[in-house]
Design a protein around this nucleic acid. Structure first.
Lengths: 192, 192
DNA sequence: GCAGCGCTTGACACATTGTCAAGTAGACTC
DNA sequence: GAGTCTACTTGACAATGTGTCAAGCGCTGC
């Protein structure tokens, strides 16, 4: 909305930190942490949903995402790119897991949040589709897959949810997650 | 708590129906749908968390879960049991997905819900552990897996989250989910 | 000096959860 | 038939959270 961009930045930084530390937090808590009034939040964001989504975008643009994406795209072949994609998620998921959980929860009741989050999921699925086409062009995709099926599979395997289950719920290390998922995804996509 | 078991049943049935139809609903809405006062809910359940968990238990015990479990345990060998386990989830997940989503969302802020849901997850993981031991005893488990690792993997693959992503978000049919997951899980566990 | 932007202050309506106290209707007992 | 107990109702309340509104204040640029 309107308002000073530096204040907006302060709010987003506070939201990012609080969500990472405490999980779901109230608008009041974010305002307090940012050192502004609760009303100031509504000068910059229409509602809680918009603030949460802006926080994700902020993490995306201020974190290592762009560099990791470039690294994936510079892989020598499709299957290596998929392996790097798994590593990208192992690296990046910790940065957004808490915000993502909060949005994922709010999605159930807030149509705006649902729509925006679906868009993001769609973007990630497109990235998966490009990787699968790459693998297929290399002739490395097992013929039992349709391109769409393989895309959906890769998308579901590299979701925050699976990462969250294995790393946070089951306590896997980053390396264990990467090694295991690279092996299973490769076996699934490329075949024996 | 106290109260007439038939009233309790009415409340649980209403909660089950409303959650399936509308996702997260308020205590007031459940009471109204059950034809009792909102206070009656608190005569039967300490709080919202307990009602949600009782609703899951109610679905478990009134639905096809027991029979499906027996069917899995009667498989001729470990890998067939795993395949049936995938089918069990394809069959059963639609029954509990909405309640599970609601609990999963509430888990972030409610420690009781978190603890109870973790217990349930632990139970499901134990079932996965038994299947993996069965596969290993058959000599069919790829040596690259540790028993724990394979258990966690099977547990994460057969989670409601992966099922939800593929079937609800991506629109896969029940059969497509079953066929694909059976193939990928088998390849991952048994090797080429 | 002053106009306007950005933020603050304090209030409000509304929804939701969980609690409390008093009341009621029916069944069961003596 | 009077009394009692159980299960539920009714209506109120506190606490917490979201989103809105109106008035005010301070700094900056003209």
């Amino acid at each position: 909305m309107t308002g000073n961009p530096r204040t907006r930045e302060r709010i987003l930084a506070a939201a990012e930190r609080l969500l990472a530390e405490r999980g779901p937090v109230s608008m009041g808590a974010i305002a307090q942490a940012a050192g502004v009034s609760r009303q100031a939040l509504y000068l910059h964001f229409d509602d809680r949903a918009e603030l949460l989504l802006a926080t994700v975008d902020h993490i995306d643009s201020s974190g290592p995402l762009a560099e990791l994406r470039r690294w994936v795209s510079e892989a020598p072949d499709g299957l290596t790119a998929v392996a790097r994609f798994v590593e990208l998620h192992a690296e990046y998921s910790p940065h957004i897991i808490e915000v993502a959980r909060t949005i994922d929860a709010g999605r159930l009741t807030d149509p705006d949040l649902e729509a925006a989050w679906s868009d993001r999921m769609e973007g990630r699925r497109n990235a998966c589709g490009r990787l699968i086409r790459w693998v297929a062009e290399d002739g490395a995709l097992d013929p039992c897959w349709s391109p769409d099926g393989a895309t959906d599979y890769l998308w579901s395997q590299t979701s925050l949810r699976v990462w969250d289950d294995l790393v946070n719920a089951r306590g896997w290390s980053r390396d264990r997650y990467v090694t295991t998922m690279q092996r299973t995804v490769r076996r699934a996509l490329a075949g024996p």
